[in-house]
Design a protein around this nucleic acid. Structure first.
Lengths: 211, 211
DNA sequence: CGTTCAATTGAGTCTGTTCAACAGCGGTGG
DNA sequence: CCACCGCTGTTGAACAGACTCAATTGAACG
């Protein structure tokens, strides 16, 4: 892990910030002065249309980066979903770091490519999948993301609201809610509480993510 | 331009290939042995669901790269839309090139980030825009892409079929066709021929890409 | 225990789809 | 030269999945 190698260098140049649910990290169009890493909590990334329609382009969990795009301005807005801790780093410092440690750029390139692959998968979801398939795909990807972060069991927390899920999947709150209910009635998921999901058979749910 | 600096090095290690409309460059899941650059013609990138539903994730014009993702396998399929010439380069050779010329990696990083920004814009389109807004957005982006390639006037060629446009915008052929007709009847576009678009007022069309 | 906000459920509507027919155009061959 | 064919694109009519608007339930908190 390159991240671990850099911990000492990083500690000298990063600052830690705490934010509350709903609080803005940065907004689309802001000058991109800082890059961030999520150390605790969850963050949503999104774009807005003038009339307020919102598309969430991604959810971040601890360990994820944001603001790495290396452009003049941020291409999307970022807000905390839960209480969150962020590491903040001036992009200028990041550039210096890249000079000193070329492998870091390689790692950034990998991260960008992973995000790109995820974005393409999401395009497939938004453009060609039904409501049920979108929700199933979302749950499977959230499960995988949660599993990476530790527990291997098929029960996990959904930190975001139905509204966030809707704006991520290109649906309405009502459709998301109805689809959760339908999946529960079909026995594909269980809902111990509103923000907690249990998946009896991952393979069965996965089968309903397409075709 | 870094590309220009590298021309001599590249000439030693690339091979040129020609492909015909509809011909496959590579398929999703194939081992990613080669990276490509489009030197002539147009290419579509897409993902398929098992039942045949297709999402086109991007169109490539001369100068664009494909297969740079640096993963084990390709994340999407690529087919020629028109007759096309491609430069092909072994990914191993590309790695060597990156060792010799670090700025190239920087450039690749930029390209990946541009693609990422485009993908996020497309998510907004697919998730939250109406059919009319999607088509208008598509035409504006194609115009910009064409304008980069030379002529600054607001008339250009659409090399792809209505079916390709539909699968790019998450619509059906019929809806795309009807929307073109509607835009024409509103005076927002002109259609000198099926694959040729003229935009009397870019600002007016742009206004109908949202809200 | 009441307030508030999120989530669920219900009823009716609408945008975009599906299914079907038709038009345009280029290529082929009689 | 023109009739025929195949393919792409357009148009029409009926349908459906998701949306909108509205009411209800549920959970968290003072």
């Amino acid at each position: 892990m390159i991240e671990t190698d850099c911990v000492e260098v990083l500690d000298r140049i990063v600052t830690h910030t705490q934010i509350r649910p709903g609080q803005t990290v940065f907004e689309e169009g802001d000058e991109a002065k800082y890059a961030y890493n999520v150390s605790r909590g969850h963050v949503r990334l999104f774009k807005l249309l003038q009339d307020g329609r919102r598309q969430i382009t991604g959810f971040l969990a601890p360990g994820d980066f944001l603001g790495l795009a290396a452009r003049q301005t941020y291409a999307y807005s970022a807000e905390a979903i839960t209480d969150a801790d962020l590491c903040r780093l001036k992009v200028g410092e990041l550039e210096n770091l890249l000079e000193e440690m070329p492998p870091v750029r390689e790692r950034l390139y990998e991260i960008a490519n992973d995000e790109l692959a995820a974005a393409q998968e999401q395009m497939l979801c938004l453009g060609r999948k039904t409501a049920k398939e979108r929700v199933a795909s979302f749950l499977i990807s959230q499960l995988r993301h949660a599993a990476d972060c530790g527990d291997g069991i098929a029960e996990f927390e959904l930190p975001m609201s139905r509204s966030d899920i809707a704006d991520y999947l290109g649906l309405t709150i009502e459709t998301v809610s109805r689809t959760f209910t339908a999946l529960r009635e079909e026995g594909l998921i269980e809902l111990p509480s509103t923000h907690r999901i249990s998946i009896p058979s991952i393979a069965t749910l996965e089968a309903s993510t397409e075709a």
